[in-house]
Simulated scan of single mutants.
Amino acid sequence: MTFDQPGQGEDPALSNHLHVAVIMDGNGRWASNRGWPRLVGHRKGAERVRELVDACPDIGIKYLTLYAFSTENWKRTTEEVMGLMSLFARYIKREAGRMNREGVRMRIIGDRARLDNKLRELFDWIEKETAGNDRVHLTVAINYGGRDEIRRATQAMARDVASGALALEQVSDAMISKYLDTGFLPDPDLVVRTSGETRVSNFLLWQAAYSEYVFTPVLWPDFTPQTMNTILQAYGERERRFGGVVK
């Protein structure tokens, strides 16, 4: 089973560098189906994150990017939004030691301007705390939207062109990628969305141009490392041509 990227051929060693992005959907529905508050589903979902991160080295995932809170999620109730922000903070504090022991590097993408100062400081801290780790790269998208990301990136590029720091001729696909929040990551090989919804919801719009997609009916709190491994086995049977033809 080979996990390749454009221009990288079919080197089997690349199977250890797979980038999987996940739209973690269905937490609230999972809880509501049981007559519980939606935040119970989010807490259960956080447990699944821990399990999946732990399993990444064994199932061949080097880069794991998780969609945790979108720019549109502010439309939810104040109770749910505040509960989610508290959950993010608790996860980082609780998992920091574990991530360092397991060689997990954590980064946060998205627009932090709207977030609480203490949460932003916590994000800065965990990124510095885990900066030396390289076994698994965990990226969590919080207050993230693909269109918002592209807007912020193009504004930054425009400022650099205006100041002379960037020549117009230097603006290329590769350069645009560097200005995105994910400039430190390879493009995702596979994007998985849970809960049965079949839309991309403004997630990694530029980066996922040639990604494979899987839409599974499994709600995120029921999504286990075994579920992911089954998806990866099926993904391994796909042939990624990146616009080319089969020879």
Rank of each mutant, 00 (worst) to 15 (best):
G145R: 09
T182H: 10
Q207G: 01
L180H: 07
I108D: 00
I231W: 04
E72T: 13
K75H: 08
T224C: 08
K62H: 10
L115H: 01
R90I: 10
K118N: 12
F184P: 02
A131M: 14
G28H: 08
P221C: 12
K118G: 10
T194H: 06
V200E: 11
G103S: 11
M228I: 12
N117L: 15
Y144N: 03
H19W: 10
K178I: 13
V53H: 03
R94E: 05
E129L: 15
G35H: 11
N133L: 13
C56G: 10
A165P: 01
Y67F: 14
R112A: 05
L168S: 04
P12H: 12
I92N: 01
A141C: 06
I109P: 01
A55E: 08
V104T: 00
I142R: 02
N133H: 12
A31R: 02
E127A: 13
N143P: 04
T230I: 09
E47F: 05
Y179K: 08
Y144M: 11
T130A: 05
I59V: 05
K93L: 13
Q207A: 07
T182R: 07
M157Y: 08
N202T: 09
D58S: 15
G164F: 04
T154S: 08
E80P: 00
E237L: 15
A21Y: 00
G7S: 11
W74Y: 13
V49K: 00
R43G: 01
M82F: 14
R34C: 08
N133Y: 13
E121H: 09
K178G: 09
P37K: 09
A31K: 01
G196Q: 07
I176V: 15
E51S: 14
I59M: 02
V20K: 09
I92D: 00
G132Y: 13
D25H: 04
L138P: 00
L190R: 04
E72A: 15
R50I: 08
M85T: 01
M99T: 05
V20S: 07
F242T: 07
L64H: 04
A208P: 00
S195I: 09
Y179G: 03
D222N: 06
K247Y: 10
G9C: 09
F242H: 09
E80Q: 05
F69T: 01
E102C: 04
L119G: 05
A167R: 04
D134T: 13
S201L: 15
D54M: 12
R98Y: 10
P225H: 11
L66R: 08
Y91I: 08
G7E: 07
F3W: 13
G243M: 10
S177L: 14
G145H: 11
G97A: 07
L205W: 05
P6V: 15
W30M: 03
D25R: 04
P188F: 14
A162P: 03
N27M: 08
E95A: 10
V136K: 01
R152S: 06
V246K: 13
R238Y: 11
